[in-house]
Design a protein around this nucleic acid. Structure first.
Lengths: 204, 204, 204, 204
DNA sequence: AATGAATGAGCCTTCATTCAT
DNA sequence: GATGAATGAAGGCTCATTCAT
């Protein structure tokens, strides 16, 4: 009596179901503390199925992480493309990150994990995803820097300057150490823009 | 034939030695992945010794963490007390965090860990340490806010605004994803000050 | 889209193909260590096919073994029938065993395995094959013993005396611990004949 | 309530006890089929103890095998040194191998196993033991070959010629396919000597 | 205080086998 | 006949912790 026989689009559905269950497990107990038994119980699938689809526990954690990152990045780029100035774009980054995290709390918490046991292969794929994302983002902001609307700074400082504060705030909120980010995102948007806006004609 | 007989200040010395060895282990393999066997090998002490001094593995991780935090906080407060204005203070926070992290890389990396298995007791002690530190810091900055030199913002936004960017940058550096923080700390100090400086008579 | 549709003599061809692939697997990793997954990968057939044709893993190992033994025995008897004296026959046994092993190295190595998980049924069939073979061989040699050309010895000593040395040598060669058997088979033929030749009129 | 507290010569005793139990398990079910659970049940020790002393299952199998081989070799060399001619020596090899196998049936059966999962390290140690043994044996027989009492043959043929038959016979006896070797060892000693004795002045 | 052998619950993973399509 | 996703029992091994010396 196989439980999933009536499922036509088998593979894909099955995997999504497992990943969703895994996210909850990881969120409740942490990745390391979650056992294979926890996963197959939560996903209502056999142990063998987990291994058939993901190879091992790492595989589940990796696929979940990559999917989450991809979704976040995709949304961010889509949002950016609706902006028409550097300032609007910078504020959008802060705002979107905040909103997305509120809407996807579990996944946001998961993406903040530091103890995910990535395989070398997953690390490489993650790096590639990151690289592609950074390239897209930088091509978007390039013109605003070129025009002087934004400061020209060392490349690796933009993300910490723009996203660092809201990320840190969200992280605290996710762990119960700060209030709802939606209420203060304006402050973080201001700070982000202040950190990278160009000098132009404004009085210092 | 106990190996440490000639050691007069035994306890203290022994513990420091073990903690140092543990820091290296944790740094290389992560806390979860480090076993008691790893620790006693690295510290060249018996398994029994570890339990005698720290109770269990958690105990080692906790004591190391608390010691690190305490040292960082102590240094920060000492540094703050040499400042004479809000701006100097804010810039000092950024600068000191950066310098300390560069000087104590392993410990800085350890303090960024998110997977340390704190006991309820340790969590409480950690919270208390944090509370005391926050009180000290806020008493220091209170007057600058009162005088209008600094903005009055929701209490839980100051740390993310001031320290968020440099922390994120340092984190990236510690994991090999960004250049030496000493070279860019000025940028982060500027941003921190811009984020919280008062409006005063300035333009805009 | 079954891969073998155009194959008329399907069953037989398919099975031979699988057995050949299995022999290679068993030779490389040993029978116990070879998994069903290994077999279906090597044979490029589905898991289901394996079960359809052989029932289970045991089935593959057994059929392969029985086929190998049968082939060796068949060849040996055919060779014996070309001999016209006891001495020629004894020498032929050594010589043929040596030549056959050199020509069928993988199978020879497989027949030397001791860890094949035979089912009770297979054990019975194997015993029957062995019994029939022994009867044939003994009927062949009986007359030479009766005539005094060969010694009359306990029945279960003939095989060890005649084949033991060359078998041991070949086994060593198959595992890389001895030189090519073809070069020394004369020595082993001499020894075999010396071990069982009758006293007749010779000196001593 | 540790079971072995009263045991003074702990380590050594414990290991011997485990090895003896393991030999019985291996003999009954085969090495591959014997589980860790079987071993710790039979040895009445904890699973952890097995791993503490032997590293893993392989470790038990290896140590047992090496110890068995060493004992057999040691005994053989001791026996050889009591002989005063080539013939006496060759007959002693056959005789001692037969007697030892009868006296140590379980171990003899174990030494005939082909499916022991040796680690690379164990393989190396085994090879070294074998090399040393072969050197000792060949130095013993060297003079008899030099004097012409024994034939000069390719080095790797002596063992198969002298020991091959009795080994094969003993193997059959150990698996229930042949009668007691003690009754026929004379036949095998004769054959061994016939296979390697020099030509000297005797009529052919 | 120090030592390290002993313990055993619990974890990850493998793999032969089934069966709906 | 062929296919391969699904199953879950069973096995090897780890590792925090204890405790007699």
């Amino acid at each position: 009596m196989p439980r999933q026989t009536r499922d036509r689009s088998a593979s894909s559905e099955r995997k999504k179901h497992i990943l969703q269950a895994a996210l909850t497990c990881f969120d409740v107990n942490g990745v390391e503390a979650t056992t294979i038994a926890d996963l197959h119980r939560a996903a209502q699938c056999s142990v063998g199925s987990l291994y058939h689809h993901f190879g091992n526990k790492e595989g589940v954690a990796e696929e979940l992480f990559l999917e989450g990152i991809a979704q976040l990045n995709r949304g961010m780029l889509r949002k950016l493309k609706t902006c028409s100035s550097g300032e609007e774009s910078v504020r959008a980054v802060v705002s979107f990150y905040c909103d997305w995290s509120v809407r996807h709390q579990q996944m946001a918490r998961y993406l903040h994990s530091r103890d995910i046991p990535f395989s070398p292969d997953a690390k490489a794929r993650l790096k590639e995803i990151h690289r592609a994302y950074i390239i897209s983002v930088f091509s978007w902001f390039g013109p605003f820097v070129a025009s002087g609307e934004m400061l020209r700074l060392p490349a690796d400082t933009y993300v910490p300057l723009i996203s660092g504060p809201i990320q840190e705030y969200v992280r605290r909120w996710l762990s119960g150490q700060a209030g709802n980010p939606s209420k203060v995102k304006g402050i973080f948007a201001d700070a982000a823009w202040n950190a990278v806006k160009g000098l132009k004609g404004k009085g210092k």
